[in-house]
Design a binder for these strands. Sequence first.
DNA 1: AGATTCAGTACCACAGCGGTCCTAATTCCG
DNA 2: CGGAATTAGGACCGCTGTGGTACTGAATCT
Lengths: 150, 150
Amino acid sequence: MVILSKLADYGVIVATHLAAHPERQMTAAVLAQETSLPRATVAKVLKTLAHAGIVAGARGAAGGYRLARDAGAISVVQVVAAIDGAMGVTQCTVHDDCKRSQFCATRPHWHRINIAVGTALGAITLAEMANPFGPLPARPAAPTRPTATP
Amino acid sequence: MVILSKLADYGVIVATHLAAHPERQMTAAVLAQETSLPRATVAKVLKTLAHAGIVAGARGAAGGYRLARDAGAISVVQVVAAIDGAMGVTQCTVHDDCKRSQFCATRPHWHRINIAVGTALGAITLAEMANPFGPLPARPAAPTRPTATP
DNA sequence: AGATTCAGTACCACAGCGGTCCTAATTCCG
DNA sequence: CGGAATTAGGACCGCTGTGGTACTGAATCT
């Protein structure tokens, strides 16, 4: 069971890359290359994120994408929800069309778990995602530059 | 985005129902009726759970299913994992076949979230699921018996 | 022996994901 | 002013896997 869809995963990667370079306005092609992800799909994800107000797109010759808000003001769960839709552990926590909901003993417990998961995803922002320091112990400057291989 | 699949949801409901009546050995048909879930699908889920050692099935005329272990010794995450497979937030946390894993900045953060979700699901046992008291405030005996409508 | 029930497998319809491509709008630069 | 570059917004499509059903065989009790 994988919680995030591939598209949502891509979305977080791309958004994080944008957060890491706040002042660059990057085109979809450049963004795809620097993250070594399929180009067309990155474009699709960016359109979805733009629709949700996470990123802002500028058209024209020198156009590109940038974060619509400050990286510290965008939580991961917002990016994920923009692509995969509202999050919930079970079907009934998202759209309640279950006849069992009246007498379902498991429901209140799912609610608790739901909050726990939502909190875990909502607590971390793109700014924290962008730099790997903080959650990790001391890590000296990595000597191996990865030289993106698409 | 719904985290649990329908099958896994059914599995937890059925396992919880078994936990609520520890000494009854219930057939798949009875179990399906009392949970008001589709009969054939319940049978399928029970077989999967039996394969994983969560429930034990007894064949023959007076056969049926019961929990293989004590309800307090089975966590929800085990039931879910038996049906949906090992849990992980992203693809790379489950089966690591991503070329980006070497230089992926988001990876360590996913690991943290992964643990948080796993803890939330692993902390609660079937015994806790079976009785709705504990997480809820005082609730007097519910007067409305639901008279299962399949 | 016969009825009952689990075990295993095979099968199918359908939704939705992942991915591609094409055609407008929009903006910069020569 | 015209052309190049780039996003916006669709339509489109293959495919995997989920959800659900049905059938056959094995085990167990009466």
